[in-house]
């Protein structure tokens, strides 16, 4: 009986239970980039988000059901050669899955009926600390994030908790892994900016920093830089993801 209960618990905790999510309320947020002259903040429609990054165990279950995303079978157009390098769901199954391409992360979320968060949504949630919804410009919070970013990577860091539960109930947005966003490559900080008149002049060279909405938020600047370095096929040992779901809205 005890053994049966144990087995049942294992099944529920690894594959059966829905991944815990929390609700994020409607709000307004001023991202580091993207605001035009005269715009103070963008409206955000509420959504639900995973409490923690997607785990190895959950990704392994996805691979079993969707073998086209296994390392052996994934199309070259959808993942680079580092995809799922050393992936082992049996060792530390609750650690975040990493080494997955954007396309694979997106497919996982779609399979759950969700999607990847937009960069705006991700940054909105990640600006919160344990008590404040927008702490990104608070020196203490900013410094904690930068301290995490400055830490050398060690393999067992993936077992660390990451940043504590924030005011929304979301955990480990900082200090564990970088995370894919649905529009991660949407920022135009490139060498071409001064030639291409259609691009955002605030994201050009030095203006990329001084023209941003939140100059104090150097941690966000690092995240945007990190995302800009990726292609959708990139598979990195410290890059994971979490999913969001839309909230049904009744029309007035």
């Amino acid at each position: 009986m005890r053994r049966a209960l144990f087995m049942l618990t294992m099944v529920v905790s690894v594959a059966g239970a829905a991944q815990p999510m929390v609700s994020i309320p409607d709000g307004r947020f001023a991202p580091l980039f993207g605001l035009d002259v005269g715009q103070q903040a963008f409206p955000i429609a509420g959504f639900r988000i995973d409490v923690r990054p997607v785990t190895r165990a959950r990704f392994a279950a996805f691979l079993s059901a969707n073998p086209q995303w296994t390392k052996a079978r994934v199309a070259k157009a959808l993942a680079d050669e580092k995809y799922l390098d050393g992936f082992d769901a049996k060792t530390n199954p609750e650690a975040p899955v990493t080494g997955i391409s954007y396309f694979a992360a997106r497919a996982f979320c779609a399979d759950r009926g969700g999607r990847l968060p937009t960069t705006l949504e991700w940054e909105y949630v990640a600006a919160a600390d344990e008590t404040r919804r927008d702490a990104a410009r608070e020196a203490d919070f900013a410094q904690r994030i930068l301290d995490w970013y400055g830490k050398p990577n060690r393999p067992d860091d993936l077992l660390q908790p990451g940043s504590p539960r924030n005011v929304y109930g979301v955990e480990a947005l900082h200090g564990l892994v970088w995370e894919w966003t649905d529009d991660f490559n949407g920022l135009f900080v490139t060498g071409d900016n001064r030639q291409d008149g259609d691009k955002d002049p605030k994201a050009m060279c030095g203006a990329g920093a001084t023209g941003s909405a939140r100059r104090e938020d150097y941690a966000a600047f690092m995240r945007y830089a990190m995302r800009s370095s990726l292609t959708p096929r990139s598979s990195l040992p410290r890059l994971g993801f979490r999913c969001v779901m839309n909230v049904e809205r009744s029309t007035p």
Binding site: G34, D36, F42, A77, Y102, N185, G186, F188, T231
Partner: peptide, 12 residues
């Protein structure tokens, strides 16, 4: 994304 063609829409 398949083409790595970048775009972003100002939500407002």
């Amino acid at each position: 994304m398949l083409l790595e063609f970048k775009y972003t829409k100002n939500p407002e």
